[in-house]
């Protein structure tokens, strides 16, 4: 009995590493392939592009990673980002730079709302976030009148920072995303509530009885996810100087995929926030590389779906015999 348990623990520990190794090898192999097909793939210019494209995925993924770490899921990040992008465009034109804090607050609010609905009303996370996803989609459409909005040139000075590259090759946007990642990672590792998030994912019942604030940790995780999504939305808006009410939709899945490819287990408790960097990198390389080598962009969704499925499969506990999975 004891020894069976040992083997199982070992196996599940290796699974997280396995996923990371898979991601790492895929990243390298895919980069080499793309580079062979089109040498400009690893050119400075493209790397700069790649890092810029990666920024929204990264911030959304590290927020989502928090929720996945709980063993829950947030399906609303895509539309929160869309809504944030639209809000950003609208607000930049009306209140100027105040748009940034307001949209960030919106993200905190949207995330906290998910957390409260989930913990206080006991609504399963996927249904709560599926519902708020619908609500924010409606809001995005209402706010934009259903049409993509472009930012008026008068407001451009407020978003030009997104074009700035540090040392000529590292976009400021990416550095901003990195700061978010580091903060999220820090909270996860060095604060009590951050640690509680992870232990809730491993064993919610024990964490509760150990006298940790389980509900607080859950709300925090959802809040971070909403915040990450809103920052992602800001990035979309400042990058493209526009607010498209559907811009974030497919990024919900990309965020989840990036987190899982970085080693976060969808059933909770395992993985690290920081490693979502790897997942986000892999995803962006595929996205960007396919454009560079001229593969039909329509394949992307298929590839990412399959990649997500593979990552979930690799990353989950399958050898627990009596496990009931719904």
């Amino acid at each position: 009995m004891e020894s069976v348990k040992n083997i199982r623990n070992k196996a599940s520990m290796d699974r997280e590493t396995l996923t990371k190794i898979f991601s790492l090898i895929s990243t390298i192999v895919i980069s080499v392939v793309f580079c062979a097909m089109n040498p400009s793939f690893l050119g400075t210019k493209n790397i700069t592009n790649l890092l810029r494209d990666m920024s929204p995925v990264l911030v959304m993924a590290c927020g989502e990673a928090y929720v996945l770490m709980l063993g829950s899921i947030d399906l609303s990040t895509g539309t929160v980002a869309s809504c944030a992008a639209v809000m950003m465009t609208v607000l930049l034109q009306s209140v100027g730079a105040w748009a940034y804090p307001i949209v960030i607050l919106y993200g905190v609010f949207a995330g906290t709302m998910n957390g409260v609905l989930h913990t206080k009303l006991g609504v399963p996370s996927f249904i709560a976030t599926l519902s708020t996803q619908a609500i924010w989609q409606s809001a995005a459409y209402l706010l934009s009148g259903g049409q993509p909005l472009s930012l008026l040139p008068a407001a451009w000075p407020l978003v030009n920072w997104a074009k700035v590259n540090v040392l000529d090759c590292i976009p400021l946007l990416f550095l901003a995303a990195l700061v978010v990642l580091l903060i999220y990672s820090f909270v996860s590792r060095y604060t009590g509530i951050g640690r509680t998030v992870k232990s809730v994912g491993s064993n919610e019942r024990a964490t509760w009885l150990m006298g940790q604030n389980v509900h607080g940790a859950k709300i925090l995780a959802f809040m971070f996810s909403g915040l990450g999504a809103a920052i992602g939305g800001i990035f979309f808006a400042v990058k493209a100087k526009s607010g498209i009410p559907t811009v974030g939709v497919q990024y919900n899945m990309l965020g989840i995929a990036a987190a899982v490819l970085g080693g976060v287990q969808m059933t909770g408790g395992k993985g690290s926030i920081f490693m979502t960097l790897l997942g986000a990198l892999l995803i962006t390389i595929i996205q960007n590389g396919m454009n560079v080598v001229g593969v039909d962009g329509l394949w992307q969704q298929i590839i990412f779906g399959a990649l997500l499925l593979a990552a979930i499969f690799m990353n989950s506990d399958k050898d627990h015999k009596g496990l009931i999975v719904k």
Partner: peptide
């Protein structure tokens, strides 16, 4: 095992 410890930690 389910209430007292977090086995993975």
């Amino acid at each position: 095992r389910v209430e007292g410890i977090i086995g993975e930690l």
